[in-house]
Design a binder for these strands. Structure first.
Lengths: 388, 388
DNA sequence: TACTCTTTGTCAAGAGCGCAGCATTATTCG
DNA sequence: CGAATAATGCTGCGCTCTTGACAAAGAGTA
């Protein structure tokens, strides 16, 4: 009966809110004068000035002394969000590689480390490579683990509430592994584990092909098919983290779709599975009839699942990603035709622009979102200074 | 460059925020003392008292003088949210009937009007019935149009940005009709038009079978099949308002599923389409073999589309609604079995508890949400008093 | 009935914050 | 060098919340 339902605002809490308003107004934008910040936030100029001084003292903002720009009047000091006050890490744990990225609070990538992994490596060995990639990023930037404010790890397969991929994973022995638990031994910041398709979807909205859209279906087209959903501007996981796994429906032949490429007539004998797809796409581009048929069948199967997603969600954009998005020229048109036949309202269809960095980038974005939620959320911001 | 990005908080704005906090703390709950409200909001008791007095003066709260309850200490005045300060209207425009509901700001239904419509009635005639139903509610409660703060109209078929059902509607001539435009002539409040399945989903989460869930797939099972989606606690419309229209996919036989019932062997000759389904369900319950087969086939088709929705969204609950939810005893078990075979994580499956009032109730809920957004959103609340 | 105890209702003092307005400073232009 | 322009810095004012204290109203007890 006496539970705290709503948060009343204290006058000192108001101060914090205004400080956060100012930080938000400066994030991602160019350095600005106090007058500009005051105009953007709706606060008065003197009040803005006082708060800005405090934020500078705490390390949130840095001062940019006026250069010799030729404007009438007294030259103004400018203030810039101190993106280097904190950093986030995103990791893509793949079958063949581990890709780690380190970014500052503006999302600018500071350091990247890509390490190969044996596809058959056991969990312990794979986690060691993860550690090595993260360490390489930190060492290269001269940072310590305490300087990292959030970490996100991208893995293949639906991620459950405990951050494990118990339902499905292509990595040997990985089903019971908790990457978050492993990293928590060295990092005290929040650590999230998320599905690779979902992270790639975030990346496409952040820096990729769907920057303008709030309702996005990201389709991963490769030897494994998957999807990530962004609805009303936010990544949706579903109640058990299995949203987007339409491929499990038998009528949607996402599991068997790649076999059209693997079994294409005319493939060189003994070709590797991963190279087979590339061969078929090249052959199709060159006019090979069997290859064109294989690509058509693959695309048709891909389209059935995509249509189910599109009809369910009515997105603005469908982004085609994954390894085969390099061959979007062969897939996109037919995909659009098939969706046009089945869907009520046909969304735009675009090819991914981020290549194989999309998962790691999306991991960075999710880590930044976590930081934002902590800073701009309900709780008070702890006064933080860049490393002393 | 000088656009207003963030809202700085003034000291007088803080007052408004605290007033809203107090209103929120009292909404939907029992009448409370100032001390209780202070505890819930985190404000001090004197401060709370001042604001409460102001809210009483403005008509937001009403005073409940202490009754002879036997507690130690001075008996406290209690304050209650004045739900009668405003009202909302929800309308369900069906093929055979128009159902209008009037509720106060607590969502308590004050008045209901159900009027029959000729299924072949032209748009003008149908809108006249809508007007009559709404007027009957208002007159019965002694209210004028200005006392209504929001209206939502539920219709069948996907609703576009302009509030029209241009893509599909079973109502003759209705495709180009704008119910919102029609009502706007007499009501100056916000008027929303929304798809019936989506509204029914809202109703089930509000007062029905899914009160505890944030991720819900509502499936309308009747002579027409449809779906409404609630994801992360909010109704999702999709970019063009066509979310949930999975029935358009050919592999999902929602359009033809009811034909299993209509063409069931043994149906009495010349039976009405609407009565046919009821006959089949009754016969199946009595053990009729052909009827059981028809129900089984109907359910199987229903399950395919439901599985697509479930796999896409991974909801916590699937609610079976619509006219056939009365026969949930015949459908639910098989539906659960089919979903168990196809889905990665099987959600709970529950039957609707709201009957044919669900659409109108959902319309009320959406109208209340609209009011909430206006009151608790970014803009300042206008001081409002109950009718003088 | 008189006294104590508990909780409410009310008031006054004090502190924090933002705003308006004015004086001061630094720079460009003529 | 002086006028114009725009940023900076300072002071007084008003608003709000909080803390603390005191009077008021009823229950329980002797």
């Amino acid at each position: 009966m006496t539970e705290q339902v709503t948060t009343g605002t204290d006058v000192t809490r108001m101060r914090e809110l205004n400080a956060l308003s100012i930080v938000r107004a400066l994030r991602g934008g160019p350095p600005s004068t106090v007058t500009e910040v005051a105009a953007r936030t709706g606060l008065s100029r003197p009040g803005t000035d006082v708060i800005v001084q405090g934020l500078v003292a705490d390390g949130w903002l840095t001062v940019v002394e006026p250069d010799g720009s030729s404007v009438v009047g007294r030259p103004a000091r400018r203030y810039r969000f101190n993106a280097g006050a904190g950093h986030v890490v995103g990791v893509d744990v793949g079958v063949h590689k581990v890709l780690a990225m380190l970014a500052d609070l503006d999302g600018t990538v500071v350091r990247t480390a890509r390490l190969p992994v044996d596809p058959g490596a056991d969990p312990a060995a794979r986690l060691t490579v993860v550690d090595a990639a993260v360490d390489e990023c930190l060492a290269g930037a001269g940072l310590r683990p305490d300087d990292v404010w959030a970490i996100t790890v991208g893995v293949t397969g639906p991620v459950d509430a405990g951050g494990r991929t118990t339902l499905f994973t292509p990595l040997p022995g990985w089903a019971s592994v908790s990457p978050a638990g492993h990293l928590a031994a060295r990092f005290s910041c929040p650590i999230q584990v998320e599905n690779d398709c979902k992270l790639a979807a975030l990346a496409e909205r952040w820096q990729g092909a769907a920057r303008d859209a709030d309702d996005i279906v990201y389709v991963l087209a490769g030897m494994r098919c998957g999807a990530g959903l962004i609805i009303d501007g936010a990544l949706r996981r579903g109640h058990g983290g299995a949203a987007g796994e339409i491929g499990a429906l038998r009528a949607v032949r996402w599991l068997t779709a790649p076999s059209h490429l693997e079994n294409c007539a005319g493939l060189p004998a003994g070709i590797d599975t991963d190279d087979a797809a590339a061969w078929v796409f090249n052959a199709a581009r060159a006019g090979d009839k069997a290859a064109r048929t294989a690509v058509r069948r693959y695309t048709r199967d891909l389209a059935v699942g995509t249509a189910a997603l599109v009809l369910t969600l009515d997105p603005q954009v469908v982004v085609l990603g994954g390894g085969f998005s390099r061959s979007a020229d062969l897939i996109l048109d037919q995909l659009a035709r098939e969706l046009g036949r089945t869907c009520l309202r046909v969304p735009e269809i675009r090819a991914s622009t981020l290549g194989d960095e999309s998962v790691a980038l999306g991991a960075l974005r999710l880590a930044l979102d976590e930081v934002d939620a902590r800073l701009f959320g309900v709780s008070l911001p702890a006064p933080l200074a860049p490393r002393a």
